[in-house]
Nucleic acid binder design. Structure first.
Lengths: 257, 257
DNA sequence: CTCATCTCCGTACGCCGTACCGAGTAAGAA
DNA sequence: TTCTTACTCGGTACGGCGTACGGAGATGAG
């Protein structure tokens, strides 16, 4: 891009997309094969990705620095760059890596039970790896395991009778809802886990807010909803019920049934 | 919390929640009143928040550093801390600030048209301030304008006949879909705007991926959906239709109608 | 044995948020 | 008027970050 055009250059595929190809290779090609000619590598790519996942699981995405990953592996910080182009790419590999934990299609289930199974698998993945909810990517990296997960959900929806755009939009409907619910539910409990008794202090400040600043005249509906217990409801229950209603609506809109 | 209990201490409201109270004051109290006794401040809190919004609009959240905000205002970096406790709090103030741009309840509309109006207002807010889509908070800061926006949506849903938990879950349903759709649509075009012709290079690498790595045997449904044009569809159209279907389903589930 | 190639990683650069504290200003108290 | 007090401003500095660069040392190919 910033390169001036160089006709008859050495090879056309070493242009700006080279870094893009590098991460695709890391995501898709099984093992870089044993390199010859040099000293034996102390680590593998898998070691690096695993260490990253372990740190993110235990602490948070913000704590995941190249120096910390390197320290956990007992190597110097810059050695990581032998295995991984940079921090962003490490994150992509981590995301793909944890999607490998998603169980395969359950088999023998109705399309609806299959969708519920898929969603449950993803929910548990978010519980194990709450940092997934922190990285706010518009789209996930195109790794093989990420695509496996999408394929499984698409297949269930196709079995329901959906085609083309309807498959994609229904999948988005379900996944966005899942993400929203998981964010509001898991993030809280995870934050409490990491920072200790933060929920307590959080409530303290919320209570002080409510009595000090909240104006029932300005927010009458919120006040009424609060009075009716609209905010008390356990979010997990709310999500299960919400998913059920989404699938009801989806089912009702099927051409067949 | 880490403080030992100190009976008859000076004042009980100077405990750990003090920093929490500070941001609440900044969000909710109109103007700190003219300070006496010192030199006149060169800036106001509003100046600082405006500068932050301007930088985030023009570039991205990652470019929003305290030093850059200060430079834009012609002051030293540390001077900002006179007005704002830190970067996180500045972000909360910015979020609240841009929610003030949301128009009030349209009035005279059906509940359904009102919901559509609210959603449209938020969508346009995301278009003006794409960085809102980057900050991946589980919940928005409890600022007056953020609550105004929630109140307006709750009120419309209450008018539809919903109560308590149903108001909250329906609101979540709508807002999470909005956020998901906005993320996948606005983030792309915004990235292209900022980084120039990145969409081109992006497509280049995607095409190379498709031909190099994509395996139709492993992802048969994705391949079929692709063949059927399921990924071509303009997402904006998809979101309008999605919202319409959500509201249809909501309407059908009302006790009354 | 030589040398090309590979891994490892110390050093360094330019960022970041912000703690600390001194300098300077201006209003109220004496 | 002068002193005191409260306030803003901001330079310096610390510890952290991602990572460019290049050298040291290991290893297999010729």
């Amino acid at each position: 891009m910033t390169d001036p055009a160089h006709p008859d250059g050495p090879s056309a595929d070493e242009l700006g997309t080279e870094q893009g190809r590098r991460i695709l290779r890391l995501l898709w090609e099984p093992a870089p094969a044993a390199p010859s000619r040099g000293p034996k590598p102390k680590l593998t790519l898998e070691d690096v990705v695993d260490a990253g996942v372990a740190i993110a699981d235990a602490d948070a995405l913000a704590q995941l620095s190249m120096r910390r990953v390197a320290a956990r592996l007992g190597v110097g910080a810059m050695s990581l760059y032998t295995y991984v182009p940079g921090r962003d790419e490490l994150l992509e590999l981590m995301v793909n890596r944890v999607h490998a934990e998603l169980g395969p299609s359950a088999g023998g289930l109705s399309w609806r039970a299959e969708v519920e199974h898929q969603v449950g698998e993803r929910w548990r993945m978010y519980e194990r790896h709450p940092w997934l909810l922190d990285l706010n990517t518009a789209r996930l990296p195109v790794g093989p395991h990420v695509l496996d997960a999408d394929e499984a959900l698409y297949a269930a929806l196709q079995r329901a009778g959906l085609r083309g755009t309807d498959v994609v939009s229904s999948s988005n409907l379900i996944l966005w809802q899942l993400l929203g619910a998981a964010r509001s539910q898991i993030t809280d409990s995870d934050q409490a886990r990491r920072t200790g008794t933060s929920a307590e202090a959080y409530w303290e400040s919320r209570a002080s807010f409510w009595s000090t600043y909240f104006d029932e005249g300005r927010y009458p509906t919120m006040a009424a909803v609060w009075e009716a217990g609209g905010f008390d409801d356990d979010q997990a229950y709310a999500f299960d019920r919400l998913l059920a209603r989404l699938l009801d609506a989806l089912e009702a809109s099927l051409p067949d049934a």
